[in-house]
Every structure is written in structure tokens, then in C-alpha cells.
Simulated assay, not measured.
Amino acid sequence: MNRIRRWSVPALAATALLGSLTLTAPAVAATGTDTVAQAQDLRAAAPKITRAEEIRRATLWLTADAGKPVPYSQHKNWKDGYRQDCSGYASMALNLPKPAPNTVALKNDGWTKPIKMSELRQGDLVIKANSDDPNHRHVVIFDHWDSGKHSYQAYEQAGHVGTRHTSHSYGLKDGDGYHAYRPVNLAD
């Protein structure tokens, strides 16, 4: 028994339209290829910056709020368009394109490359990104070693205090989760 289906003109038009969209629309990869490509485009747009310029930019937020540090916030952007959290601050100092990468992206998405803590130079980053809780992730901008290399001076954007330049020992104790990274857009 043969059955003949009758299609209405609107149904045929809709089917043809959907078929043409499927053939011409950009494919969205289930593997996250588009996200990787977008990250590569952003990294390519990141201008080269000297370490001295990065540190000059980092110092801007120390007094940018009418002579006071920029306040910390994970939900707000500062007047320059960068997030007021630690990764937004590091991205601003590095002059990375907006929207700036978060702490996990700074570590994992090609913005930085791992180095040894002993290789840290001014402008490198010390990052803790391996936590399921965003409140336990952090990034600081290395400035210089304190005497004895048991601590170092770093710039950071921290909760309850905002932007500051202070001494840290992150990454110097086994198991604290902090590691050293060199930003790839630094022009050495």
C-alpha cells in the first residue's frame, strides 16, 4: 500500500529554509573548537608589552579611585573596562583584550607558559587556578624577590583591600597550589 504525503507550500518552504541554513550556517563544534579559535584570536590581538610598561600599568590601580586603590569586585568593571578582580587586574596590567581572561584561562588557554618559581622575573604571574571554587583561585603579578628569596613583592587585586603591592610566599610552599607563569605577550 503506497501512501502519498502531501506537503503544503509553507511546510516545503520552511524545510527548504532550514536545509539551507544547515548548509550555510557556521558549524558549532561539540569539542569547543569555536571557543579555542576565539581564544586564539584574542591572544593574537594582545599587543606585546614590556615588563616596565606592565608594572607601570599595574601601579595605576593603586591610586585610581580618587587617590585610593581600586576596590575589589568579581561582578563589576572599573572605568577602563576591566573586571575589578585579580585576573581582570592582571589582564589590565598586561593590556590584554577585553573581555579579559579569568584566572583559569590565564593559566590554561595559552596566555601564559609555565616556568619554575626560581625563574620568576618582574611581570611574571603566580597563579592558583586548580580549584572548583572561584573564591580559592588567585593570580598576582611578581615584582621582585625579598632578601633570602623566602618571599617576594607582588601586585594584586584582593578581596576586602582592593589593589595593593605586598609581600607573598605563594608558590614557595609545597602543595599550596600556586605556580609561576610567564605571559606570552611580554616583550623581553
Rank of each mutant, 00 (worst) to 15 (best):
D65C: 00
A27W: 12
T31N: 14
Q122F: 00
Q122E: 15
L17M: 12
G159L: 02
S91W: 03
P47W: 05
V184F: 06
V161A: 11
T31A: 10
I115D: 09
D188A: 10
T103K: 04
T59P: 00
S20N: 07
A58W: 00
A25Q: 10
L21E: 08
T59F: 00
A37G: 02
N95V: 03
R164K: 12
G67V: 02
H179Q: 14
G110S: 03
L186P: 09
R164G: 05
H168C: 07
A27Q: 10
G162K: 00
R56L: 08
R43T: 05
R164F: 00
N2E: 14
G81V: 06
S87T: 03
V140L: 06
G67Y: 02
D132L: 08
V9L: 12
K79Q: 15
L186I: 14
H144D: 15
V184P: 09
A52W: 01
A37Q: 13
E53Q: 15
H136K: 13
I141E: 01
V36D: 12
V139L: 04
R43L: 12
T31F: 06
E53M: 09
S87D: 06
A44W: 08
H160I: 04
A27D: 09
L96P: 12
L172E: 10
A37K: 10
D176P: 09
M92Q: 13
Y181C: 04
N108R: 10
N108M: 07
V161Y: 08
V9C: 01
T50S: 15
H144M: 09
N95L: 12
N2Q: 12
S8T: 15
M117N: 05
H75C: 00
S73Y: 00
P114W: 03
Y178M: 07
L94K: 03
D132G: 15
D188M: 08
A187M: 08
I115A: 05
T24V: 11
K107E: 15
G171D: 09
D85P: 02
A58C: 01
P183D: 08
S151L: 04
S73K: 04
V126T: 02
T166D: 13
Y178W: 14
I127L: 06
R56A: 15
D85Y: 03
H165Y: 11
S91N: 07
R43W: 08
K68I: 02
V36Y: 10
W78S: 12
Q40K: 11
Y72M: 01
Q40F: 04
Q153W: 15
Q122G: 02
S167E: 14
D176N: 06
S118A: 15
D85M: 01
E119H: 09
Q38E: 14
R57E: 04
A37N: 12
R3D: 14
K68L: 12
S147Q: 13
A14E: 05
G175H: 01
A100K: 01
P10R: 01
G123I: 00
K113M: 08
R43Y: 08
S118V: 07
K48M: 13
